[in-house]
Design a protein around this nucleic acid. Sequence first.
DNA 1: AAAGGAAATTAGGCATCCCTAAGTAGAAAG
DNA 2: CTTTCTACTTAGGGATGCCTAATTTCCTTT
Lengths: 228, 228
Amino acid sequence: MNVATEDYLKTIFNLTQQQDRAGTKDIADRLGISQASVTGYLQKLAGSDPPLILYKKRDGASLTEAGTRWALKVIRNHRLIETFLYRTLGYSWDRVHDEACRMEHVISEEFEARIAELLGNPTHDPHGDPIPDRNLHMPDEKALSLAELQPGDVAMIERVSDSDAALLRYLEKNRLVPGKRLTVKERSPFDQNMTLRIHGVRGKVVLGPSVAQQVFVEKEVRHVHTAA
Amino acid sequence: MNVATEDYLKTIFNLTQQQDRAGTKDIADRLGISQASVTGYLQKLAGSDPPLILYKKRDGASLTEAGTRWALKVIRNHRLIETFLYRTLGYSWDRVHDEACRMEHVISEEFEARIAELLGNPTHDPHGDPIPDRNLHMPDEKALSLAELQPGDVAMIERVSDSDAALLRYLEKNRLVPGKRLTVKERSPFDQNMTLRIHGVRGKVVLGPSVAQQVFVEKEVRHVHTAA
DNA sequence: AAAGGAAATTAGGCATCCCTAAGTAGAAAG
DNA sequence: CTTTCTACTTAGGGATGCCTAATTTCCTTT
């Protein structure tokens, strides 16, 4: 019921998916506020009853049970809303994020339940992010970035980073959307540019590392003969 | 983009539908806050650029052009959302108001436009309140309360007050919903209780004045011979 | 070991929007 | 005309959530 708290919890959850603890600076950067503000708020979250985060001075924050549950609730809301906007209201996939960021804090459990049912309890949002289920269970997502693949690798796009609208438009134009299979053709040792073939699409795509890092894939097991 | 401001504007709009100006106390009562807080906020709204209200000390507030436009935008959002929750998501009519009160402040113009289209540009919400159109035009609603009818009068229910969920459940159970026609059979001179026949429904309904005041009707023209 | 730099914290402050308590203005009633 | 009541306003204050500036901690580098 509190926008600021929910934004902090969501951010800490996301950060601790990859690192152990979420640092003050990282949180400040993601929320677009000052480090000092974050320090103050972390102290508050750690001191609430029940505590929502574990916080040790100069050692960042991590979520408690209660904090995790709350974060997952917000993330479920967010991703259900995104799916709903995309599928039911016909939003383009680059416009769902901002709307969901505002709506996620105000919808009731009834709203959540009704859109989940309307959508047939979807498991992934339009960017491929997994949606926690009713009991807030969410499958582990191994985050293998496209940027980590080598020439010859074949992979399927699983999800893409959802918060940069311009990036999403670019990815869509190049057919880099969840579900597509691709083969890595080349990788420049200088600028790390990758040349890809997307299966079922003519032509090739060259991606800089900053883009490739935002696309996450599942690598396919290589067969004896490397793909041509 | 500001919940407090939008709530004030909405409240002043509603109050000035019936009276000339909205008094501090009336606003405070509707918003559930103190009169002192209202005074302070009215001064702020009157001093903003452009001014959203006209405010003279001890003489209440009324909306300016800009204030009216903003209020109508929020009211359009509210009523579209109510209609959407009711029709598309299957909400019961007593649960749509609270959800709409929160969502109305956060949805974008795109959301508004898309649900309006999905619903076929509805002109009335589930309680019968008119929805301002895209250009924020709203038909005048003459507010003839059921409580003002006399025995023998025939009328059609146009709309009902939407903010009291328990009242809405009661009305629905008694089939007192927009579109129904009814005849006033009796009116007790002591307690002002009204006895009604609702057309197409067997039996009679007795309503106290506090309920009858919340139901608004369009009276049908009486014919030569007064109804029995 | 000392210096430099990045990250984090504390101190002090501001805007927003609410509160209670106390005082004022104006209308209705005696 | 004066009292009284109600609506309204002013004064002063509190919680929230952000800010900048200054300081501290700790890690790396030399």
